[in-house]
């Protein structure tokens, strides 16, 4: 029966958790950046299309498109470094929390623990931003809030929950394998 026995703490090393925890948010940052890139290129191109005469459009469309892509790329590389670090630390925290509170790998507990941990980390992140960027944080426009915090927070929640699910699946697999070998 699933959920029997206590886990061996060394089945998935901290090094592996750190590496995977760093890689997944990096990919998520890149994916988000590419979506932002596409959105900005399309929206600004529509404006250009409406302002410039036919013969003068193509050059500015290319220049604008690549300038958007290049600047988003630089920003996304910086953010990928930050999010990798945050992701790696989050993965280690999650591992400890899951092993401590869910030694029997129950799926419903995984969902609750990962969701709660992600929410707690997001709350800390939000409070830190409020403290350090108080004068500069403005959510006057919903798109500002969604762009800088709303969408990344949703992605973070999703990554943490899915990552925890995968982690639990791997642990469970190893556990069952261990049980069948010993039998």
């Amino acid at each position: 029966m699933i959920g029997q026995g206590v886990l061996n703490m060394n089945t998935i090393s901290d090094k592996v958790m750190f590496y995977r925890g760093a890689l997944v948010p990096m990919a998520a940052t890149f994916a988000y950046s590419i979506l932002v890139m596409i959105y900005v290129i399309i929206r600004s191109s529509l404006t250009i299309y409406g302002s410039m005469p036919k013969g003068e459009r193509s050059l500015i469309l290319w220049l604008n498109g690549f300038s958007v892509a290049y600047s988003v790329m630089i920003f996304s590389l910086i953010m990928a470094m930050v999010s990798s670090l945050v992701g790696a630390v989050t993965a280690l925290i999650l591992k400890k929390v899951l092993l401590h509170f869910n030694p029997q790998f129950q799926w419903n507990k995984v969902l609750i623990i990962s969701f709660t941990t992600a929410l707690a980390l997001l709350t800390i992140h939000y409070l830190l931003l409020r403290i350090f960027l108080n004068g500069y944080m403005t959510f006057d426009y919903p798109e500002t809030f969604l762009f800088w915090w709303g969408f990344p927070a949703v992605i973070f929640l999703g990554v943490v929950v899915v990552g925890s699910y995968q982690f639990n699946k791997a642990l469970l697999g190893q556990h069952l394998k261990g049980n069948s070998t010993s039998n």
Binding site: L23, A27, I34, L59, L63, F66, S67, Y70, M73, S76
Partner: peptide, 30 residues
Amino acid sequence: IKRFVSYTLFFYATTALIYWIFIRPLHLSW
């Protein structure tokens, strides 16, 4: 995920190359 990260980095490198060789010299005096 590893493959996606690799492709994205390749795409970024290509974008940077095109930007520096063709785009920047043109946009400075557009």
